[in-house]
Amino acid sequence: MNTNSTRYTFVFAIIVCVVSGVLLSVFSEGLRPQKELNEELDVKRNILKAVVLKEPVAPKTKAADVLKVYDSKIEEVVIDDKGNVVEGKKPKQLTGKDTNLFPLYLYKEGGQVVAYAFPVVGQGLWSTLYGYLAVEADATTIRGITFYKHGETPGLGGEIEKEWFQNNFKGKTIYSLKDHKLTPTIVVKGKAADVVSKDELSYHVDGITAATLTGKGVTDLMDRWVRVYDAYLSKLRKI
């Protein structure tokens, strides 16, 4: 058999293509549901983490448990830039074209809304920071924040993923009831208590040593998204 003839080469190439093609399709299709589940699970875990449900999101939690908690407690809605809920839309259906539609997650306990969570994205020093911010039912107090993806320097800007940094946000307010204005959280340089007055402590948090610019990124990101979601949140505040 002449393995170098043009005819043979073509036939051989086609066989190799078909065999590997079939094999890959089988793999890809067969595993699709599992893969999609994983991606969904990842998003849901982070939302749950932001609304501070410690137990169900420990890394070892079974997927089914996470989903059960999520499905029973989180309601997904989409809002527009006027702050109105868009009926019949789910966050999953949003595409890059929907620049004035935003996903919002309502955390309910016994039918009552306990917290609102929404994604925050912004530029750090080296990378884009991805996270979720959760606000209490009063639409003013921060319940929790989480950053789940970033490429900042480990030990410096990378500290934003650590609990000590994220815990600083808890209890801060994004709206000043006294001055009636928005107060997106500001990451200061150094310790907040040293830098700002007591009144302003409600919207300033400690910075990370030697990571001023990542801190600035977080400040910018807070400012941007708190303003976006204020369209919705402002309607909930009792003033």
Partner: peptide, 9 residues
């Protein structure tokens, strides 16, 4: 060990 050799402290 960037925290010990930079920053303001």
């Amino acid at each position: 060990y960037p925290a010990q050799i930079s920053g303001s402290t």
